[in-house]
Structure formats: C-alpha cells, structure tokens
C-alpha cells in the first residue's frame, strides 16, 4: 500500500541496529589493521592520530592506541615544536569525549594528565570544570577525584579552596565517603593541631564534630559519617588524655551519642560508637557498661558476632594491662 503510515516494529528496529553494529565491526577491523601497519613502518602522522581517535571514541580502553598517540605526540614535539599546542588541544578534546563515553576509563584520565605535562601553559579552569561535571554525574568517581588531586597540585590551587569544595559536596550529599576522605586529607594541613593529642586545631575540631553530628543524627545508618567521626576523635595517642581538651570533646560526643542511642536503641553504629567513646574516656571504669553494649551488639548484628567478641576480649585485655601498670 502506498502513502499509509506505519510504525516500525521492534524487529525492524533491531534489524536496523544489527546492521549498524555489523558495519561498525568491519570499520573497526579495517582501522585497527591500518593503524598497526602504519606504526610498524613508523608512520606516526596525522592520519594515525585520526584513525586511533576514531576507534578510541568508540572504545576508550585500548591502551595500545593511547600509547601510539603518546609516541606520535612525542615525535611531534621533536620535529614540529611550534605545533605542539595544537596537538595537545586535540588530545584534550579527545580525552574529554572519551571520558564522556566512559567516565571510568583509566586510560583516558591517565592520558589526560600525561598530556598536561607536555605543555607549559594549561587552562586549569577548564580542567576543574571537567572534574565538576564528572563528579556531578557520579560523585564517587575515584578516577575523577584522583585527577582533581593531580590538577590541584599542578595548578597550585589553595587547600582552602579545596576544603570549600568538599564542604559544598557534603552539603549536597553527605553520604559520600570520597568527600569526607578528601576533607580528612586537607584539614590537618590547614588547621594543624597545637598539641599531639588531637588531629586538628581545637576550634576546627569542634566545628567538624558539630558537622558530623548533624550527619549522624540525620541518618545514623550512614557509614561514611561514622567513619569520619572515628577519624576525628580516635586519631591520637591514647595515653595522654588526662585533663586535655580532647577529653572534654570526647565527653561531649559521648553525651550526644547517648542521646541518639535513646532514640535509636537498635542501631548498631551508635552502640559501637558509644563503646569506643567509653573505652577512650575511661576503659577501665566503664568496663561493665562496655561489655553490656557488646552483648547488645551481638544481638542486633549477629553477622558480626565474631568481631564484637574479639573487641570485648581486647578491651578486657587492655584493662588488665592498665590494672597491672597502675598497681606496679
């Protein structure tokens, strides 16, 4: 019939797709053959860049092709030093496209940071923008976090700037271990502690404690918040706690954790943190309470029974040692 409308059936759509796939495969094979034969004969030229680029945009994880590009760029650097910038911007565009196709492509990110080393002037604003975009799509993309560290170093971006970046990321979503971890790398460098007891300057430590408490109360099942709190509080030499400001911080934290425990009596994370706080504050004096909590933990989280039992015995052992050292 002529002039009638019809809708393509699924089979027809699949047929079209299958044809496209077959076409692609043929193109891929031809391109690969050509690339290797050119490389063999040392023809590291614009054409080989074009060919490898085409294949890489489809499949960015063929390391050999990236290496061929590196060879070609290095050769260009020697033979045509004045044209290096053009080649570099070409590589930046290609890697960006590849990262778009697969944001977790090791090769693309590596190639990009290698490329930055090949030029004297880098537009870092652009690089940060790319990172922002990628982290927007997937805030746990560690390739991108790593790359960010590289460009922070290269561009000599201030640590304060990065701390603010991490604060903003956390404000958007606090269940992101990457952001908290990034923060824990930065803070001791910006706000070093004046004593050897705590990991941070007193005022900053109080601020961070408050921030993490908000996260813990909002979602006490969020593992990353508990880990960060542990890092904040339990990072010092335990022997020298007496009369220190850290001790009062720990007591404050214990108080709020106990409040939370009242609200969430079945939450294992709270129980465990109360345990740890009691242990640091006065392991010996709190032994009964700690062991009670460990029994409760075994009940609410039987899967980790072994761990809790070990923890209990370790604390008892610790206390034994303390008793001995005190009596001697």
């Amino acid at each position: 019939m002529h002039g009638r409308l019809k809708v393509r059936t699924t089979a027809e759509q699949q047929e079209i797709k299958a044809k496209e796939r077959a076409k692609k495969l043929v193109m891929y094979k031809t391109a690969m053959n050509l690339i290797f034969s050119k490389r063999k004969s040392g023809e590291l030229d614009d054409e080989i860049l074009k060919m490898t680029g085409q294949v890489l945009t489809e499949n960015p994880d063929i390391s050999t092709l990236w290496n061929i590009r590196k060879e070609t760029i290095l050769k260009t650097k020697e033979t045509m030093p004045d044209r290096v910038d053009d080649y570099v911007s070409n590589e930046l565009a290609l890697t960006e496209q590849c990262i778009r196709v697969n944001p977790k492509s090791y090769n693309s990110w590596f190639h990009r940071s290698w490329i930055l080393d090949q030029v004297s002037i880098v537009d870092f604003k652009n690089e940060f923008l790319l990172c922002d975009k990628c982290l927007e799509l997937d805030e746990r993309n560690f390739h991108c976090w790593d790359y960010r560290r590289i460009i922070v170093q290269k561009s000599k971006t201030s640590l304060e700037n990065e701390l603010e970046f991490s604060t903003n990321k956390i404000k958007k979503n606090f269940s992101n271990y990457s952001s908290w971890h990034y923060r824990s790398e930065l803070l001791p460098r910006i706000y070093p502690s004046s004593s050897d007891q705590s990991i941070l300057d007193d005022q900053k430590l109080a601020e961070e404690c408050n921030l993490i408490q908000n996260a813990i109360f909002t979602d006490p099942n969020d593992q990353s918040a508990w880990f960060y709190q542990r890092w904040l509080l339990f990072n010092s030499d335990e022997k020298s706690l007496k009369n220190s400001s850290l001790l009062s911080t720990l007591n404050n934290e214990l108080e709020s954790c106990q409040q939370l425990h009242d609200l969430e009596p079945d939450n294992k994370w709270v129980k465990l943190q109360v345990c740890e706080l009691l242990r640091r504050i006065n392991g010996l004096g709190n032994e009964t309470e700690i062991l009670q909590l460990i029994q409760q933990l075994i009940k609410v989280d039987p899967l980790r029974q072994g761990y809790y039992t070990y923890l209990g015995s370790k604390i008892v052992e610790e206390n034994q040692k303390k008793k001995i050292s005190e009596s001697s």
Binding site: M1, H2, G3, R4, L5, K6, V7, R8, Q13
Partner: peptide, 10 residues
C-alpha cells in the same frame, strides 16, 4: 511511537 519510527509505506 517515536517520530523516527513512523514511516510512510511506499
């Protein structure tokens, strides 16, 4: 249907 998938017979 997607407009791309609507075709005229003939």
């Amino acid at each position: 249907p997607d407009p791309e998938d609507v075709i005229l017979e003939g």
